[in-house]
Amino acid sequence: MIPTIASSRFFRFSYIFYVACFFIFLMAPLVVVAVFSFNDSMFPSLPWNGGTLDWYLNDTEPKLGIFNDEELLDSIWTSISIAIATTLISLSLATCNAFLFEREQFPGKNLLYVLMLTPLVIPGVILGVSILVFSSTIASWVELQFGYDIEALRPGLPLVIIGQFAFITTIATLVISARLRKFDMTLEEAAMNLGANRLTAIFTVTLPYLKPAIMGAGIVSFLMSFENFNTTLMLVGSDAPLTIAMFDRLKEGSTPVLNAVSVILMSGSACLALLSLFVQRKGE
């Protein structure tokens, strides 16, 4: 079953056929979504009525194109702002965590490390629900004690950011730690021998070394936040991010404008993927 071991022709061909089917299975939904965004029909389904760009550019109902659909455009901006905020907070904490776990020794370190990993095994819906419950407990308590309502603790964008940050930090920490582990400590010592204090050494030597990992973790965090559905669903208020807005429309049965949004999302993801590949190349 490896190239150096002879196997029957029939076996080899059926194996290749299977792998080919697998990749068709993998690509089919994406290709289908993209193709149907150009179908001149009110529904994202057959028959094929000829190509059109209406679902991108048209500016009148009922065939409202994505670039004129204020509601969807707003939700894209909401998603982007959430993703930027989540990424920035997660990266700062993740960098601290990486230094803590790779550089420091303290009692209970292993326990803390396991705790740090737990957000990965908590289903997103439950993470969202538990934060919803806890924040509203605090909000009710504050209101009862001080008669002051903390808007940020009620379902809405701040809570969505907090909920996503809670698990994205773990992933960012793993990525940044992995690179810090490979860092040659003598470089930092050299900087300190040359008169830098610890903090200057970290900022001028170690952090630049970590930059590719931080950028990589940033791209992954942005994408995970942008695409997150489960946690967001539980914490969202009146401003819907894109995934929630699309979900609501899908349930009602929507026009191919959703295909057009999907194509834009795919292009965005492709750009991010290329960027992360470029960052990784540079780091090596």
């Binding site: 993998l26 690509m27 089919a28 939904p29 994406l30 289908v32 979504v33 149907f36 994202p44 389904s45 994408l223 942008f226 695409e227 559905f229 995934t243 699309m246 979900f247 899908l250 959703l258 295909n259 999907s262 999302l265 795919m266 993801s269 492709a270 991010l272 993927a273």
Partner: peptide, 15 residues
């Protein structure tokens, strides 16, 4: 496929 939102993938299967 996993760089694309789960929503888009599921939508593809619906079509």
């Amino acid at each position: 496929p996993f760089w694309v939102s789960e929503l888009v993938r599921t939508y593809g299967w619906m079509i």
